[in-house]
Nucleic acid binder design. Structure first.
Lengths: 156, 156
DNA sequence: CTGAAGGTGAAATATGGATTTCATACTGAC
DNA sequence: GTCAGTATGAAATCCATATTTCACCTTCAG
């Protein structure tokens, strides 16, 4: 299972286009990738059914909405047994200020990406929210000074 | 400039819905947020013009496309003067395996999010790509063992 | 109280796009 | 070489949706 799916040139171009602009019509898409609208539509349908092509989402501007502070927070657990990990992960799923969480190799156990309003707000999120969890031993926050690059698309 | 924009309850609900599903029709959207299609459409238009509502993108499944390895790579620069930073940032913009790059506080200067095919491929990206840049003094990679949480939406 | 400004919902209108059909072209197995 | 299986493009069909209009409220300044 989870085999990598084989794509031809046109499939790849379809994915490239749609990763950047989900609003393209089949007509326009077909022209860009050099195919017909019908064929293109069938390919998109197949890619969706294969699970390669996921949901379309609308991006918003965090700064304009008062969510100007990005923070990466590394977490070390007191113990890494299954129960505490599982409990922690369920807990993180509920924290809406945490937009991403990765289990990572190295000195730390988890890497959290948090979007806060400002420093004061981050204090709330961290102290009253996340660090409340008692499986956590230790944490370290890195504040984002500037977003140099940010894209939701992956290379093909 | 860059003032935070004030939204009412309905605007916020519109943003919540659209952040998760960009394909909603105005009709459906209106029902969900408890408004009329016309009014809803005017709000969406205004939110777009204000820049709050950005582009719609289509997410893909990296694993199914053979991009199963996420890595976070911290970078320390030899010097942090304007020229080397600027050159490095331009350089990163061109690296398509780097999906995100942040300038951060703390011991390191930059945090890179890289999407690679596998370890062997990451060696290529890092050694033959990124570390080639001669403004870099030092780097440290953390490999993602598992994605616990990943969302493109921010809380409102 | 009055009138201007701005937002609202229902309904009319316009427009564009998704989806299917069909005849044809390609591919690989035998 | 032939046949089954599969993908293709053009055109026809079927839909739904965006967008506008208009009469009506609400708010608030004077």
């Amino acid at each position: 299972m989870n085999t990598v799916i084989q794509l031809d040139r046109i499939d790849r171009e379809i994915l490239k286009e749609l990763q950047v602009d989900a609003e393209l019509s089949n007509q326009e898409l077909a022209e860009r990738v050099g195919s017909s609208a019908a064929s293109c539509w069938r390919r998109v349908k197949a890619l969706r059914e294969a699970g390669v092509l996921g949901p379309a989402v609308r991006l918003v501007d965090p700064a304009l909405l008062g969510r100007g502070l990005d923070v990466f927070c590394e977490i070390r657990m007191k113990s890494q047994n299954r129960e505490s990990r599982s409990a922690f992960e369920d807990f993180i799923a509920l924290q809406e200020d945490v937009v991403a969480c990765y289990s990572i190799s190295g000195d730390w156990d988890y890497l959290l990406h948090i979007v806060a309003r400002d420093m004061k707000d981050y204090e709330r999120v961290l102290m009253r929210g996340i660090l409340n969890h008692d499986a956590i031993a230790n944490s370290s926050s890195k504040f984002v000074l500037r977003r140099i690059k940010f894209q939701t698309s992956i290379p093909l």
